[in-house]
Design a protein around this nucleic acid. Structure first.
Lengths: 235, 235
DNA sequence: TTTTTTAAATGTCAATATTACAATTAAAAT
DNA sequence: ATTTTAATTGTAATATTGACATTTAAAAAA
């Protein structure tokens, strides 16, 4: 049997970028690094890939170990492969990306861990190239949310229309017209209004909605440029 | 100085997926693997990352070594990180992705190399998980082309409207209405009609167009769903 | 009980974009 | 001169977008 004997093996790390939304502002999950180099500096959740796990498994394991979070959908984002990015030893890092409802995971994220939610707009300087990773993740978020109902996935099971609007406004750092936004959103036919209202934000209260799971997968797709029926072409 | 002494180093490979368009059909660049395992089987262009090069540099080097192609814009696609994907030794592979005008690189792709253009629809069984990589790349192509004028970038300097239409029809595997497609395309204001015609495809001949480089970067962006001025949010 | 306050919900209209569909034109070949 | 082929151009009905103001529900204050 042949072997790849002349090749160099390289350290492979995972870094996890976790965005969270609490219905109000968009936040980033960060930890203070517990080991050298750069001990105590702010950092993304990171670690090395073990020999017998897939990179996806490694990402889930590392996130769990450092934050307690489990069962979160993380997506691979990008490899950061500059030879000098880690000063100790050449390490390539695969950045993973998740986006969650903060309230939903409040309990898992216990004091046992040092992970903290920081408002995205106030994120501190991070170690290595982690700030670049976060920037890339923001870009990806906007890109994906443009074509895909990604942002819906991080809403609570029940949510209000003003909440979704706030979320979109946060992600795109813009202000939207209530009337048009609401109309567009409801026209998808995906939201089922509940009888209950959320009275947190106002005296009148805003109706809760749920996603219609039956239609969600098929129907919700944005429409594109040169393709008359683009829904058919995206997942 | 600390070291990451307890961690396992892993082989890191690159695989390159290169799509090409010749104005007629959409093709995939493949090689017959020159070494064990799986010698002589069809494969993507692949190799290992060297200690002192970035992953992007490795991708460019490997493509050059195996095909002669140089100066091609390749984008990172995805890591394939299953532990058993290479039967010889655990290897993670970073898949890179390019899309080119076949005619433009005809000379570089000389007989010296064994790379061949194969019609995408007739692509053979490839080694390891390379077919899955190609599938993923097709998906990515559609996704990106939906929001980004990516497909324009692989057209010849001069191209005709029927050519672009064929390209879109190939990528999305659909049929488009000539009249609507042409109108939409011209309405971008990005195309400058040349006096010359391409008489290959018909007796009447189709006008050549060029991209207006001045407007191209700013103006050409698709428009999105919930965001009134989405251009502002994409690169 | 009445009034005030706050944010949610809803409506209209003009402008623009999309779709579906058919006739005309240029130029080579017969 | 006629035929053939594919490119080019047009129109009308429909749907979507964006800009803009008023009404409504319910708690809090008077």
């Amino acid at each position: 049997m042949t072997k790849y004997s002349k090749q160099t093996r390289i350290l492979v790390a995972i870094d996890c970028i976790v965005f969270g939304f609490d219905g109000d502002i968009l936040k980033l999950l960060l930890i203070q690094r517990g080991f050298e180099p750069e001990k105590n500096k702010w950092s993304l959740m990171g670690g090395f890939v073990d020999p017998d796990e897939s990179t996806d498994e490694a990402a889930a394991r590392i996130l769990k170990q450092l934050t307690g979070l489990e069962g979160i959908y993380m997506e691979q984002m990008q490899v950061f492969g500059e030879p000098k990015r880690d000063p100790i030893e050449r390490t390539i890092s695969i950045a993973y990306f998740a986006f969650i409802d903060i309230h939903k995971y409040e309990k898992q994220l216990s004091d046992e861990y040092h992970a903290e939610w920081i408002a995205l707009k106030e994120a501190p300087k991070l170690i290595f190239d982690h700030n670049a990773m976060v920037e890339k993740a923001k870009e990806m978020l906007r890109y994906k949310a443009a074509l895909h109902p990604l942002l819906f996935e991080l809403l609570p099971q029940k949510f209000t229309i003003p909440q979704i609007q706030t979320l979109y406004e946060n992600v795109y750092d813009t202000v939207l017209d209530k009337r048009n936004f609401s109309r567009k959103l409801l026209s998808t036919g995906l939201l089922i209004r509940q009888d209950e209202k959320d009275k947190e934000g106002s005296k009148k209260g805003a109706y809760y909605y749920k996603l219609d799971p039956a239609i969600y997968k098929d129907k919700f797709q944005a429409f594109l440029n040169f393709i008359p029926n683009p829904q058919a072409f995206l997942n």
